[in-house]
Write a protein that binds this DNA or RNA. Sequence first.
DNA 1: ACGGAGCTGTACCAATTGGTCAACGACGTA
DNA 2: TACGTCGTTGACCAATTGGTACAGCTCCGT
Lengths: 199, 199
Amino acid sequence: MTIPVSATWGCDSMARTLADRQDVIPVLAEVFRDHGFEGASLSAITARTGLGKGSLYNFFPGGKAEMAKVVLAHIDSWFRTHVFEPLDRTEGGLTAVEAMFQATDAYFRSGQRVCVVGVFALGDARDLFTEQVHGYFAAWVQALAGALVRAGRDPDRARADAEEVVAGIQGALVLSRALNDTGVFTRTLARLRRIASGD
Amino acid sequence: MTIPVSATWGCDSMARTLADRQDVIPVLAEVFRDHGFEGASLSAITARTGLGKGSLYNFFPGGKAEMAKVVLAHIDSWFRTHVFEPLDRTEGGLTAVEAMFQATDAYFRSGQRVCVVGVFALGDARDLFTEQVHGYFAAWVQALAGALVRAGRDPDRARADAEEVVAGIQGALVLSRALNDTGVFTRTLARLRRIASGD
DNA sequence: ACGGAGCTGTACCAATTGGTCAACGACGTA
DNA sequence: TACGTCGTTGACCAATTGGTACAGCTCCGT
């Protein structure tokens, strides 16, 4: 009945548990992305990850809530290193801003992939993960606004522009998914680029 | 135990069921708004509406799916009469556009209320109500783009602007809810107004 | 070779899910 | 006053939910 682990795995062992927990996180992210927090049932999670409940609760003793927290932390970390910190490091130019748009377009697959944090923000999950949901968007707006200020924009205007860009990205995700048209996302991103570069 | 219907209602009878079914729809909309489609459990619905499951299934034999369809139709109808049609009727000016922004701000309570269609669009429910989700946003973009064209804007530009405004509204809902700050919604709406009026 | 540590699948749990249905009782008519 | 109609209720259903417990397994250090 049961297949020996080594038969399907066959590598050295120490890395096993650590590697697996790490490897599972992106899969969990996809499940939460597709179904939201409430909709991500344990059966869906076990099916997509290929892990039994035992393993899942071994990795994440806190159950679904901990899985979601880890996923949010993983996303936050990705955006911090690939988007927020490059923006923070930028001096005068707008190349980091353009890099942000490219990273965003790639990450969300031109609107075919939805934002987990955005999905959480719209539902009940917001109140379970207030901190992380708030932190993600606040960090994004702040990083972008800072970069715009350093590019010479008026601080109030920079903050307003940053809010509009971040909101615009989220809205483009909603709209392109609703209309099932990646063109909407691409076009909206193009217009947001213009806003970011100061019209 | 049971209170006679006439004691709480006291009107003529023929209208009763019809009136009730109509009255329930906004309550259903609130439940779907708060919890999404999957999250709107029948127990939550019975609690908020005060109706037993029997009455619910008497009004909506199709169950949750029919309730959601009716809610979507109700929302669509509201937007058609209060937003889309005024936009369609407008001739040259932008007063209907400004009216749209005011109606939108009031409807979404400056971002404290979320868009049911947007919530559905991001989740599994999109594929259950493809038609209605698509129709709502397509109609909005089209009505707004038409008004902008009639106000003298280049058709391609008008469509891009309309997409950006509608997406921006949805994004502002996400962002203001995530940051728990209605100011974000108000500010973003102000900037979208500028886009709509041609910078 | 042995033993312990820890990963894994799975049976099981109470609670809840969406949905059904038969009995109840309020109503208008006669 | 009696009756038939019909909306309503809440118990009940199988299925599924998130979560627990545990026995069995593989693996590693000794």
